[in-house]
Structure formats: structure tokens, C-alpha cells
Amino acid sequence: MGYYPHFPVSTQRLRLRQFTRGDVDAVFDYRGRADVALYLFDSALSRDECAQAVQQRIVHTNWAEEGDKIVLAVELSDSSRVIGEMSLIWRDVDARQAEIGWIFHPEYQGRGYATEAARAVINLGFYGGDIHRIFARCDARNSPSWRLMERLGMRREAHFREHARFKGGWDEEFIYAVLQREWQGENQP
């Protein structure tokens, strides 16, 4: 049981690989920014916090039990520059559910890199990890994130209003999902 994928995973323009200790500055470059953190659970991270985060990510490369995360650095194939990160969390072992997440450096947004990386990670989940349903959540105001979910062909399954508190205000949240049998066509590996 469990899922131990092989890395790196290459796409047309990107390489998805394990984090290494040398990635702290690259991570601080985007996780240190307030605009990036706006709709994330954490606020902008200090360099020390980024060092800790990278330390944790180094071992987040497989699923052994429920709740485990696979967190990958996304780098440009050409320059090896780290432009963001992708995550896939094993949420429910019996019902084969996983949650996908993404964070990219603003300087590298708007070019389809997140879409490309997300497709590769969804393929990992469905075909490598034999996941039945992959879902994603975001703040309803985070339009780049939910537009990405729509671009991926995910379906809006929830729109919660004031169901929780978030950073001192009421939270409004979208949940999108796609089933393995719905994931096809141009999205195939």
C-alpha cells in the first residue's frame, strides 16, 4: 500500500522534483511575499520559516498513510529556476480522495505553468496513486486559483458562505473536484 512515485516528472516546459536544502532562497522569494500569502492559510513567511518549510518538504515525497503529502518544487526545464510548488495530500485512503494545491511566484504567473504542473500532478494522483477523486479549495476571492481549477476541467462542488473565520473576517470558500473517469482527453499523460 501507499504510493512512492519517481521524480523528477518532466512536462513540456517544467520539471517537478523533490525539494532540497538548496531551495530555501527560491522558496523565500515567493513565500515571503504578502501578495502570494493573501489567500493562503499562513501569512508571508520569514526566511527562517522558509528554511523550516523546506526541511519538511524534503521528506514529503510519498504517501504511506492517510494525511501524507507529496510536495514538489516546480522548476523551469531550461534554467532550473524554481518558480513554485505543487502539493497532493492523501485525504481519504478508503474512498481514494486527494487534495491538490499550488503556489507560484507572481513573476511566473500568467503563462500556463501552473496549469501544466497541475495536469502532471493530477496524472500522478489518478494513474500512479489510483485516486478516485481529486479536489481543490480556495477562497472565493482568489480568482486566479479557481480559474485554474476551471481550466483543468474541475467542477465547482461547493460554495460555502461564512462557514468559518479566516484572517479576522468571514470565510467564503469554493471546492472544485474531478473524478478519475472524468479526467481525459487533452489531459491524458
Binding site: A95, R155, E157, A158, F160
Partner: peptide
């Protein structure tokens, strides 16, 4: 208000479940 319609997000008694969430403020 219908706020969520989950499809096959869980197993219920061995079968895929479909669940609706309704809410009011």
C-alpha cells in the same frame, strides 16, 4: 441555500456517496 453538491467524495456502507449541503445565515 444549496452550498455544496459532492459526488463520490466518500464511501457510505460500501457505495459511493453523494451529499448536499444546505445553509442559511
Amino acid at each position: 441555500r444549496l452550498e455544496a453538491h459532492y459526488r463520490e467524495h466518500a464511501l457510505f456502507q460500501g457505495e459511493w456517496d453523494e451529499e448536499l449541503h444546505f445553509a442559511i445565515l
